[in-house]
Structure formats: structure tokens, C-alpha cells
């Protein structure tokens, strides 16, 4: 059995990174108590190596989306520092494609905003659509695409932003199971073809084990890194593989343990 479950050793020798999160905490004003602060993230330390696929796993309210927003520089940490290799691309649960543009123009806009010259944009957009096997969708409006196709266009838009790091905030949560399964295959394929680093947020343990090289489990309130696993199952994996199931069982147990702690006080 190729499966290895081990606590990831902290790689102190790495000097290059796609993202480096150091001692990051984040507090928001607590509702109800004037002047009070609610700590959402507490002393998070996380490195994403170039080309690495990391998933952030946690129950609701563990601050995993907050952490992703911080890495995307949409918000500032209360303490600590975050460094990324270039501006990361961000993918959401909703596709976030602009409905006033065609699929192709959506990608071309991302290229334009990252400084690509006009003659290249059209060809590059076509190449990226081909990457997600949607070469015929160039002129299609967003509303003419299915949910899965929209997320594939969004997936193709991410490399167009000229970033080495793709942040994904539960991007497949709103899709049906069959489409999600296909998109897992696509994401794995594109990740290995492009060499992008991926930081993927989810609460779905099976999805985590299907995709990740490294799984980071966050505890809730405040979000702290509870445990890490390295998933050694070779890609391509299937969500129904027994090895995936086996690892999922262990991680699920740990996740449930984290959730139970909140019921005890």
C-alpha cells in the first residue's frame, strides 16, 4: 500500500515558496459586545511550496475562507505577515465570471489586466479554453454555459492572471456530484500540466484526499492548525478508491474530534 499518513515535517530548508504565512492572527469586532474582539485565526504558520497542492480542511467557522482572503490580499491580517510569489488567482464557490462578457472575453480581460499585449490575448485565451476542453465556448455567454462549464472557464481564467498560486474557496461545492467528480479530474490534470501551486479550501474530507498532496486541518474558534497529513496516494486518484476512503476515515475521525471539543464547553 502506497498510502502514507504522517505528520508533515516542517521543511525549514525551503527558501522558495508560492505562499508563506507567518504567525498570522486575525480578529474581527465581536457582535454584541462593544469593544470586544473575536479572534478568528490564531498564529497560523503555513508554507505552500511551488507546485504544491495543499488543502485547508475545517468545520464551518474555522476561518479557512478568512485565511484564503488574507492570502489573496483582499484583507489584512491583524498580526503576522503573508508573502506570496506574485498576485494569486482566486476561485470562488460561485464562478464569478462577468456576465457581460463571453467566456473567451472573460479570459482575455484577465490577460489584459495582467498586462498581456493585445495580439497575444486572443490566441492565449483560446489555448487556455482548450486546456479545459472548452475550445468551442469562446463566443458563448456565461448564461449559456452549464455550472460545470462555468467553473471550467473560471479554472482557465486563473492561469491567465499570470500568477503561480491558485487559491480555491470551495469551488466545486455548488456542483452536482458527477460534475464535481469530473472537475476533480480536470483540476488534477491542469495542476500537473501547468505546475501551479494550489491552496484549496473545503469541508469535504473525501475531496481533500482526492486532490491534496498535503492536508492541513484547522480547528475552530479560533482557527489554529490542528494537524497536517501528507497524502502519498499516487495521482490520478479516484474519489471511490479504497485508499482514498481509508485516509478519509482517519481524517474524518480527527475532524469530528475537533468539532466535538466545541460541544464540551
Amino acid at each position: 500500500m502506497a498510502t502514507t499518513i504522517a505528520k508533515a515535517a516542517e521543511d525549514a530548508t525551503a527558501v522558495t515558496y508560492a505562499a508563506r504565512v507567518e504567525h498570522v492572527s486575525k480578529s474581527f469586532p465581536a457582535p454584541g459586545t462593544p469593544g470586544g474582539r473575536q479572534r478568528v485565526l490564531d498564529d497560523i504558520r503555513l508554507d505552500v511550496a511551488p507546485g504544491e497542492f495543499v488543502t485547508l480542511l475545517g468545520a464551518s467557522g474555522c476561518g479557512k475562507s478568512t485565511l484564503l482572503n488574507l492570502v489573496a490580499a483582499l484583507d489584512q491580517p491583524s498580526t503576522g505577515t503573508i508573502a506570496t510569489d506574485g498576485r494569486p488567482a482566486l476561485m470562488f464557490q460561485e464562478h464569478a465570471l462577468f456576465p457581460w462578457l463571453t467566456a473567451g472575453k472573460n479570459i482575455e480581460l484577465a490577460l489584459k489586466l495582467s498586462g498581456a499585449a493585445k495580439p497575444e490575448r486572443r490566441a492565449e485565451a483560446e489555448r487556455l479554453l482548450e486546456l479545459v476542453r472548452l475550445q468551442d465556448a469562446h463566443r458563448k455567454r456565461v448564461h449559456e454555459l452549464s455550472g460545470g462549464m462555468r467553473q471550467r472557464v473560471a479554472l482557465a481564467r486563473a492561469p491567465a492572471q499570470d500568477s503561480r498560486l491558485l487559491l480555491m474557496d470551495e469551488p466545486f461545492a455548488a456542483l452536482d456530484a458527477i460534475t464535481r467528480d469530473v472537475l476533480h479530474d480536470e483540476l488534477t490534470r491542469i495542476w500537473s500540466e501547468t505546475g501551479l501551486s494550489v491552496l484549496f479550501v473545503t469541508h469535504n474530507v473525501r475531496e481533500t484526499v482526492r486532490l491534496a498532496q498535503r492536508v492541513v486541518l484547522l480547528s475552530s474558534r479560533p482557527g489554529r492548525i490542528a494537524r497536517e497529513w501528507t497524502v502519498g496516494i499516487p495521482q490520478p486518484r479516484r474519489i471511490e478508491d479504497s485508499a482514498v476512503a481509508e485516509v478519509s476515515v482517519e481524517i474524518t475521525e480527527e475532524l469530528r474530534g475537533e468539532i466535538r471539543r466545541h460541544g464540551q464547553h
Binding site: 476542453r133 449559456e144 454555459l145 452549464s146 455550472g147 460545470g148 462549464m149 460534475t179 469530473v182 490520478p236
Partner: peptide
């Protein structure tokens, strides 16, 4: 298990879901 089956599967899904 990937290439060919996935292409067909995606084409089918796209055709079924498109508006």
C-alpha cells in the same frame, strides 16, 4: 482512466446541462 473517458463524459455533461 483519464483522457478519453473524461472527454466523452464532459461532452455529455455539457450537452445535457447547456441552456
Amino acid at each position: 482512466r483519464d483522457a478519453y473517458g473524461l472527454v466523452g463524459l464532459e461532452a455529455g455533461l455539457d450537452a445535457l446541462d447547456s441552456v
